[in-house]
Simulated assay, not measured.
Amino acid sequence: MFDAEGNRIHIHGGSIIAVDGQYYWYGEDKSKSTPATGRWHSGVRAYRSSDLTTWHDVGTIIPAEPDVPDSPLHPEAMMDRPHIVRHPRTGNFVCWMKVMHTDGKQRSWVYQAEHFQGPYNLVRPGFEPLGMSAGDFDLVVDPETGRGYYFFERVHSELICADLTDDLTDVTGTFSSHFPHPHPPFVREAPAYFRHDGRHYLITSGTSWYFPNRSEIAVADDYHGPWTVLGDPHPNDATGTSFHSQISSVFTLENGRHIALADRWLPDMPDDMIRRAWDATEAQFAGGTPDPEINEIVQAGAPDTSSARHVWLEIQFQDHRPVIEWQDAWSPESNK
């Protein structure tokens, strides 16, 4: 995908937010994240559009901090999946991000700004919500009550739904747990929330490093569940991996259509390697025999994420069930 000037778009772990009649697509800037540079990210970048089709680069909204070694925004810090919500009363923009720290813990960092494009100020330094190592996540603000919810993977264990404080910068202590699994690749990560006809939906993926893994949709009548797993939503994807991608968020248009934003981290990964990666991940955590080739790839560290691709997938409903089918082209006005 390219911006209005013909340059490749670099938005990963991305989301879209509507602000004052404009759409902003934002996420991790991976444009310089090659193994040679050692850069995990180059800050949080955004693009603006009035029609969801033509995107203008507005630059970095939360810059990297190369001169602050212990900052979560240092280019080598493993910062992932920034999510920004707007406080319904104050109008402030609250950004949560996860950081994988060198001590093996994953912590949440919270920033806040008066304007979407910043400047963002740190308001809550790295912490473990509810005392838990918090992985991939999504933020939700109820459009009617203004209450906030934080869906996150309790690393390699289960999915947590936690209530946010009134200012949306912390958790209250009220939470519920869902989809418990003994270990990857079955543990659900990358939660992406959306609402349809008054019901709550969550898309999650399995856990197997950067390899594509199985997507799953669940439905509930409340944020805290109980959640009913509906299974694989892809009738024409034999791998069940959202077409070799991982969904990071779902954006709902004014007309009620839902667009899942995803990353294809390993664009050239063949199907047989994907299946081997699932088996290898299960073997790793269940005490089985590791796959030498898969293990070698993982031990090499993060891949060339600057070459990752963007995938947009529309979520449609057939017989009241969410379905994701491949479309070669898409526009906000039509189903093609």
Rank of each mutant, 00 (worst) to 15 (best):
A260S: 07
W278K: 04
Q327G: 00
T165D: 03
D268Y: 00
D136V: 08
L73K: 01
D263C: 11
I203N: 10
G256P: 07
G206M: 05
R124W: 03
Q318T: 14
P63E: 11
Y111N: 10
F151L: 15
D142R: 07
F127N: 03
V85S: 07
H101L: 13
W109D: 06
P119N: 00
I259S: 02
L230K: 12
Y149F: 15
H224C: 00
A302C: 06
A302F: 15
P303C: 05
I84D: 02
H56I: 09
A4W: 00
T53C: 12
I61N: 03
G91M: 05
G135L: 12
G126F: 07
P226C: 06
R8P: 06
Y111V: 10
Q117A: 12
P233E: 00
M1R: 12
M269K: 08
R275F: 13
M273V: 15
R275D: 10
V68F: 07
Y23C: 11
E254Q: 13
A308C: 04
S248K: 07
F211E: 02
T145N: 00
A286R: 10
A4N: 14
F211W: 11
P143N: 04
S133D: 14
Q112N: 09
A218V: 04
A64I: 02
R45Y: 01
Q318F: 06
P69N: 08
T289E: 15
I247D: 04
T90L: 05
L230I: 07
E325I: 09
E254P: 11
Q284C: 09
R81V: 10
W55P: 05
T172W: 09
F175N: 03
Y193Q: 12
S208C: 15
I62S: 05
H41S: 05
Q299S: 12
K105T: 15
I274W: 05
I324T: 07
Y23S: 08
N121P: 01
V99H: 08
N255H: 04
G59C: 05
E189K: 11
N255R: 02
F179E: 00
K105E: 12
S334W: 11
Q327W: 01
P72N: 06
V140M: 09
V110R: 14
P75Y: 11
H115V: 00
L230S: 12
D80K: 13
Q316E: 15
T281L: 05
G6H: 03
G27E: 06
S108Y: 12
V19S: 08
Q299T: 12
A300S: 15
A46M: 09
D232V: 01
H181R: 14
H115G: 04
G131Y: 02
Y47Q: 00
Q318G: 01
S31H: 13
G126C: 10
S31W: 04
W209R: 06
D291P: 09
W227C: 05
D142C: 06
D29R: 02
S208T: 14
D67T: 14
G240E: 02
D222H: 11
A280G: 15
F211G: 04
M78S: 14
H310G: 11
V68A: 12
R45L: 03
A192Q: 02
V123T: 09
Y23E: 07
E158F: 04
W330Q: 08
P180F: 10
L253G: 01
T145H: 03
W278L: 14
A280F: 01
G38C: 03
A162K: 00
G206N: 00
G288H: 05
S307M: 13
A260P: 01
E296Y: 04
S208A: 14
L261F: 14
I160C: 13
